[in-house]
C-alpha cells in the first residue's frame, strides 16, 4: 500500500501526506463541497494550534450554515491556505486541489490507517 495515498474520513475531509510522511495537507472532499453549497467564508485554523484527530480545526459558512471542519489526524497546524480568505469559493471550484485548507505536522502516521482509501470512500458516499 502506498503510504502517500490520499485518505478520507467519514466526515468528508481528506488528507495527503508529503514525500517524507511528516506533514499532511487537509481539505474537504468533492462530495462535501457539493453538499455544502456555495462557500462564502472560511475560518482558517490558527497557526501552531495543537489538534487531536476529530477536533474542529476551523469552519466554513455556506447557505446560512456554519459547518465545522474536523482534522483527520492529530498534530500541529503549520500552514493555512490564505487564498481562501479572499476567495472562499475556491473550495467549491477545487476542493481537493487549490481549495486545500491547512497543512499539519503529523504526530502519529498510524492514525491514517484508520481512514478510508479513495475506493472505500467512493463506496461510502455511494451508499
Amino acid at each position: 500500500m502506498n503510504v502517500h495515498e490520499k485518505k478520507y474520513t467519514e466526515e468528508h475531509e481528506w488528507i495527503e501526506l508529503s514525500e517524507d510522511g511528516k506533514t499532511g495537507t487537509i481539505g474537504v472532499s468533492v462530495y462535501a463541497a457539493k453538499s455544502l453549497g456555495d462557500v462564502v467564508f472560511v475560518e482558517l485554523p490558527a497557526l501552531d494550534a495543537e489538534v487531536t484527530a476529530g477536533d474542529s480545526m476551523g469552519a466554513v459558512e455556506s447557505v446560512k450554515s456554519a459547518s465545522d471542519i474536523l482534522t483527520p489526524v492529530s498534530g500541529k497546524i503549520i500552514e493555512a491556505n490564505n487564498v481562501l480568505e479572499e476567495k472562499p469559493g475556491t473550495i467549491n471550484k477545487s476542493p481537493e486541489g487549490e481549495g486545500w485548507i491547512a497543512r499539519i505536522q503529523v504526530k502519529d502516521g498510524g492514525e491514517l490507517e484508520n481512514l478510508m482509501s479513495m475506493d472505500e470512500y467512493a463506496k461510502f458516499t455511494a451508499e
Binding site: 474542529s56 446560512k64 450554515s65 456554519a66 459547518s67 465545522d68
Partner: peptide
Amino acid sequence: GSAYKITR
C-alpha cells in the same frame, strides 16, 4: 428566517 450550525 433561518440559520444553521452543523457539527460532526
